[in-house]
Design a protein around this nucleic acid. Structure first.
Length: 408
DNA sequence: CCTCCACCGGAACGTGAGGAGT
DNA sequence: ACTCCTCACGTTCCGGTGGAGG
């Protein structure tokens, strides 16, 4: 094969050298957020008091993924800081999926201020707390702390952080903290301690999903910024926004779909985007997401999943916990890995279920006990392909399960 | 109506890794 | 070198349970 041919298609894309795909990044926050005017104004009114020296009310933002919660919040925050001039306002944003324990939340807050650097682990909580308190008070101003995806945090750790931040706030003498919580979960406040709820006394803002037309406008803006006007047609955008609207009006996914479509079309040397690439991109995104979530699994979960896949491959349509454990055990031994207890396996199965890789239902078989019936939600071939890439599992390449002694 | 299967899933605890301070 | 901290991952122990068969 001629190496020059291999790269030729990339050379062709030079025609579009003024294109700037950074504007299709989902983290990019534009200066215009179409169809979120109401939400922007609500937040601006709330944050605005900070400019007059009054700490904003605590606020909780509800809405599904890709409804612009994060973008709007960061946008308004950015504007606030731009307007604040001499005013002492600090805007601290963090994603609780990354900062997933009290320690790192406080560490992030603390390290937003000058002074002693706090290590990302190691300190006792008391020391951390008092250092953060000292730093904030020395700074002397209003602090807005944004906790994005706070529902995931609370599900995992409980609502202690909120209490700790509220406590910190009440102990501050010169500064004040306002909390902004961003969540997908409408029922979040059910999980909050009533003591915390009353002290939070928060305002609520709900972001509704975008319609297909809303998404079209958002995409149109991005296309303009990225200088893709001549590459992407309105029909393309209509298709993408319709697809995205079907998937819960998630603008983030719509932008990603646009970006992926354009990438694929460009690297195929196309002079313009067409429908075919949109569908290709969508298929690619789906299978990438699955492959990625399988790849990220710990090795023990991988062989568990592989076990389920092999059971399927050998003709089963639904398998129960007992069979799965047996298959898992054989694979673990064959791979030279320790065999974990059934208790651990149930937890791992629940994880796989939550990730949507399998679906499991408990079913009672009366006299014959109770078990979980497990369905594999993804193609067997995909599972095998990705899992067998794991270097620790190379021994399993041509492995097949021993014959089941018990017939169904 | 009761039993009893084959597993579910909560609670408590152990271990070892990763990092910091002294 | 030693202590202190937190977290992820696993184990042990064990009470709980829907419903077919008696």
């Amino acid at each position: 094969m001629n190496m020059f041919n291999l790269f030729e298609k990339y050379l062709n894309t030079q025609t579009f050298s003024n294109i700037d795909l950074r504007y299709l990044d989902t983290n990019f926050i534009p200066n215009r957020l179409p169809h979120r005017e109401r939400e922007i104004n609500l937040l601006a009114e709330n944050f605005g008091t900070a400019l007059m020296g009054t700490p904003p009310r605590n606020i909780f933002i509800y809405g599904k993924t890709g409804t612009g919660k994060t973008a709007v919040t960061r946008f308004v925050g950015r504007e606030l800081i731009n307007y604040s001039d001499e005013k002492r306002i600090s805007f601290i944003y963090m994603n609780c999926e990354v900062k997933d324990n009290s320690y790192s939340v406080f560490e992030t807050i603390g390290n937003s201020f000058s002074g002693e650097q706090i290590p990302f682990t190691g300190w006792s909580f008391d020391r951390l707390y008092s250092t953060v308190k000292k730093k904030i008070d020395q700074w002397n101003g209003i602090v807005i702390v944004v906790l994005d995806e706070i529902d995931k945090f609370i599900l995992k750790n409980g609502d202690d952080v909120l209490y700790q931040i509220l406590l910190l706030n009440s102990e501050l003498e010169r500064s004040k903290i306002s909390i902004v919580g961003i969540t997908n979960d409408v029922k979040l406040s059910d999980f909050l301690d009533s003591r915390i709820k009353s002290r939070l006394n928060e305002e609520k803002v709900v972001f509704s999903p975008y319609t297909s037309n809303d998404i079209f406008d958002i995409l149109k803006d991005r296309v303009y910024l990225a200088k893709l006007d001549n590459y992407v047609s309105d029909e393309n955008l209509k298709l993408i926004s319709t697809l995205a609207a079907q998937e819960n009006g998630d603008a983030r996914r719509a932008i990603e779909l646009l970006k992926t479509s354009v990438y694929i079309a460009l690297s195929n040397g196309e002079k313009a985007l067409n429908e075919k690439y949109v569908y290709l991109a969508r298929a690619k995104m789906d299978s990438d997401a699955i492959a990625e979530s399988i790849r990220m699994l710990p090795v023990q979960s991988k062989i568990l999943l592989l076990g389920i896949a092999l059971l399927y491959e050998s003709g089963n349509t639904q398998v129960n916990t007992g069979e799965v454990f047996e298959a898992y055990r054989n694979l673990a031994i064959a791979a030279g890995l320790p065999v974990l207890t059934p208790r651990r396996i149930t937890d791992m199965l629940s994880d796989l279920d939550m990730q949507g890789l399998v679906s499991a239902k408990v079913k009672s078989l009366g006299r014959y006990g109770r078990t979980k019936l497990i369905d594999l939600s993804i193609p067997v071939s995909e599972v095998k392909k990705v899992i067998l890439q794991d270097e620790n599992l190379s021994k399993l390449n041509n492995y097949s399960l021993p014959k089941q002694s018990r017939l169904l």
